[in-house]
Design a protein around this nucleic acid. Structure first.
Lengths: 205, 205
DNA sequence: CCTACCGATCGGTAGG
DNA sequence: CCTACCGATCGGTAGG
């Protein structure tokens, strides 16, 4: 599935009751939830199967391996976000405009996410089979860093360590997912407030 | 060990080469590092023992169980930070003063931490034996939230969702540890810049 | 999607 | 701090 297909699939899942989702999507949902709470190695394939309501070996009719489930989940996280920020980083608008545009898209994307992706930490990229996402994540980080450095160079931003800003942006995305999966939908105002918080923290004016 | 003893022990470890640390402290160091990169269930007791240079059953001469290692590490994280913020939150200074004072202490504490505590996520509190830290963490969160709410009520701060600010503060602490354990010591200026970033993001003026 | 089962690895114990 | 070993659980396969 392309990035556009992943985005369309999220919209379709959001408009369908979970009970009517395909088994494959219900596996993704329960695997994400259990990995977020117990970690990748703490969430066993038996835990996941049991949450879905099937037996453990039946999982392997839908995914080749446990890590293949994570590969699919990572595409909703790293792949989509990287495709988006690479596009925005290339734009020639002022850094503050580009950053605000990206943050609003980013926070909205995670606030609407049907899977609890919070267990997909950067450290997971070292598991065998997930190496491709280490590269994508490096591209995402480099793009966000370049927007921040542009803003510092143009005098728009304070000279805050970009790695601090990167960590802050990720933590706010996870907080959006937490609200969304706790059945507390995140309003447009709250997403805007969070983006403004980051912009104010950076801006010199 | 009391909170003060933990703080003193950190200073002692920082002034001693790792090779001269006690076996117990070297177990804490390697366990923290492996849990940060592979997760609690992904870091096996054999991995930890091997990193320390002993056999796996020898670990149990120093700690009663695997979770007991995490209990000790959590004291350097949650217990110390909670004791500190409870004290500051009670003060009657303006919210922005209290927040700045806490952030500077907090970022300095983590920037000097000899153990890589980044694997000690909130979700770990659900493991059997770690319930006490769920309560401490709730106290820490409530204290930070009350400082932010005070600032909103007094007109010092924008009405940013406190849970977003809490997530942001934690992410910056983890970033301080990352720099410190990558052997890139965090200067007082960088810690101050990070605290100012948070304050600017919140402040109305 | 199921039952039955595999070898590997897990945290922890016994005994020195 | 070691060797030897325990029952439990892991991810995954065979075969229907």
């Amino acid at each position: 599935m392309s990035t556009d297909d992943l985005i369309a699939h999220v919209e379709q899942l959001r408009s369908t009751p979970v009970a009517e989702w395909s088994t494959r999507d219900r596996i993704l949902r329960e695997a994400a939830r259990l990995i977020a709470t117990k970690g990748y190695h703490g969430a066993s394939t038996r835990d996941i199967a049991s949450a879905v309501g099937i037996r453990q070996p039946s999982l392997f009719n839908h995914f080749d391996s446990k890590v293949a489930i994570v590969v699919e989940l990572m595409r909703y996280d790293t792949s989509v976000a990287t495709a988006r920020i690479v596009n925005i980083a290339r734009d020639d608008a002022p850094a503050s405009d580009r950053l605000l545009r990206y943050l609003l898209w980013d926070f909205t994307w995670y606030a609407r996410m049907p899977f609890d992706l919070r267990g997909l930490k950067e450290e997971l990229h070292e598991e065998p089979g997930l190496e491709q996402f280490a590269r994508e994540h490096a591209t995402w980080t480099a793009s966000l860093t370049s927007i921040i450095r542009d803003g510092v160079a143009s005098g728009e931003f304070h000279d805050v360590d970009p790695s601090v800003v990167v960590a802050v942006v990720i933590s706010i995305c996870w907080e959006m997912i937490r609200s969304a999966t706790d059945d507390r939908p995140v309003s447009a105002k709250r997403r805007r407030d969070a983006a403004d918080f980051v912009l104010r923290g950076l801006s010199r004016s």
